[in-house]
Design a protein around this nucleic acid. Structure first.
Length: 371
DNA sequence: CAGTCGTGGGA
DNA sequence: TTCCCAAGACT
């Protein structure tokens, strides 16, 4: 770590902060979470922005704050409504952790987001980055907020060649930021580094000629700005074959299933589906037996109607979508429902299964469809 | 540490 | 098409 920061001492901290913050003051984007410094709104925005683009977050943030304007509103909301508001954003444990933490703040701190690193760090879903972001942006406390932008920008400015994909590397950048951060305006300092990473110091072809801190940048002066940062690439997704079934009853309702409370897409709803190994790929009898085994649902399978490929960070789903006819009643359990095309809209579904909803609705009410 | 956990957009 | 990515946290 000592060697990684060999260029840190040569940075003119005051001039760097001034150039960076002046640029941000002039050039920052108008974003809905920048209208005020409400710690709750800062918190929500930071959770939404994790691994997610600004343009994607904006409409979600506006709807979310409209629906849950305060900590109390979110604390008292049904989880189902909260998940529905997050539907399509991905990483759904983010919002379940957020609501859990908001409930803790509501009960334990009277609805005031704690302003110390020690207290805020214990909240679910609030890691090292989010701690620094909330403390600096909402409370003006000089704490590093090291995200991917900051690591990219600082790796170029200080010519740091450590692998930013490794978890341990973040500490090197936190150390650098602790030295460089503006005590007068840590909020703008942290936001400016991220804004610079988003607008100027981009992953590919950075716009160095437009950069307000080019004169401070070792990477630029060494001509290595396009070599940095060092980031080992992720490995390929594992392929999983699924068979999902639109199971209709005589009234045109369909069966939906709530996923377990832990793991992939926790507590989201889906069409009943089973993992199939290649040899049984289209064997309807085999799929019928798995549906009975795993969901207690008796189905008469009909034809396959489409194939959906859906890519996650670490796996890829290849879903064969079938139609089927419900034989008899479904078991009366919390994780199974029989819903109409209208009622289904109230339930949160992952994007892969929203595509299946489209197929379900195409033949809405047409009970003579399956042959 | 390395794997888990989503999605949509751009090169 | 394929790949990488975008304001990470948790186990």
């Amino acid at each position: 770590m000592t060697d990684s920061l060999k260029n840190l001492a040569s940075i003119d901290k005051d001039a760097f902060s001034h150039d960076l913050i002046s640029w941000f003051t002039e050039e920052q984007r108008e974003l809905p979470w920048r209208k005020d410094q409400d710690p709750y709104k800062v918190w929500v925005s930071e959770i939404m922005l994790q691994q997610t683009r600004v343009d994607t977050v904006i409409p979600y943030f506006n709807r979310f704050i409209e629906q849950f304007p305060t900590i109390q509103d979110l604390a008292q909301a049904e989880e189902e409504k909260v998940l529905k508001a997050w539907e399509g954003l991905g990483y759904y444990s983010r919002v379940r952790n957020l609501q859990s933490a908001v409930r803790e703040v509501h009960e334990k701190y009277g609805g005031t987001v704690p302003a110390t690193k020690e207290a805020i760090s214990t909240l679910k879903g609030v890691g090292p980055y989010t701690v620094g972001a909330i403390l600096s942006i909402a409370y003006g406390i000089p704490e590093p907020a090291v995200d991917g932008n900051v690591m990219r920008v600082i790796s170029r400015i200080l010519s740091i060649w450590d692998d930013i994909a490794k978890a341990s590397t973040r500490k090197i950048f936190e150390e650098a930021i602790r030295t460089l951060i503006s005590e007068e305006n840590p909020s703008y300092f942290n936001q400016a580094l991220m804004e610079l990473g988003a607008l100027i110091c981009t992953p590919t072809s950075p716009s160095c000629l437009l950069c307000p801190v080019r004169e401070h940048c070792h990477g630029f002066h060494e001509g290595v700005e396009n070599e940095l940062p060092i980031k080992t690439k992720a490995k390929k997704q594992r392929l999983v074959h699924l068979a999902a079934v639109i199971i209709r009853d005589d009234e045109g309702n369909t069966v939906i299933h709530k996923r377990p409370s832990e793991g992939l897409l926790a507590n989201m709803w889906e069409f009943p589906n089973v993992e199939i190994s290649l040899p049984f790929y289209r064997d309807k009898g085999y799929i019928e037996s798995l549906l009975l085994e795993q969901f207690g649902i008796k189905v008469k399978m009909a034809q396959a109607i489409s194939r959906i490929e859906h890519v996650f960070s670490h796996l890829k789903w290849d879903i064969q979508v079938f139609e089927g006819k419900l034989q008899g009643p479904i078991e009366e359990v919390e994780d199974l429902r029989l819903v109409s095309p209208i009622e289904i809209d109230e339930f949160p579904f992952p994007v892969s299964h929203q595509k299946i909803i489209q197929h379900y609705k195409k033949v809405e009410g047409d009970v003579t469809h399956d042959e």
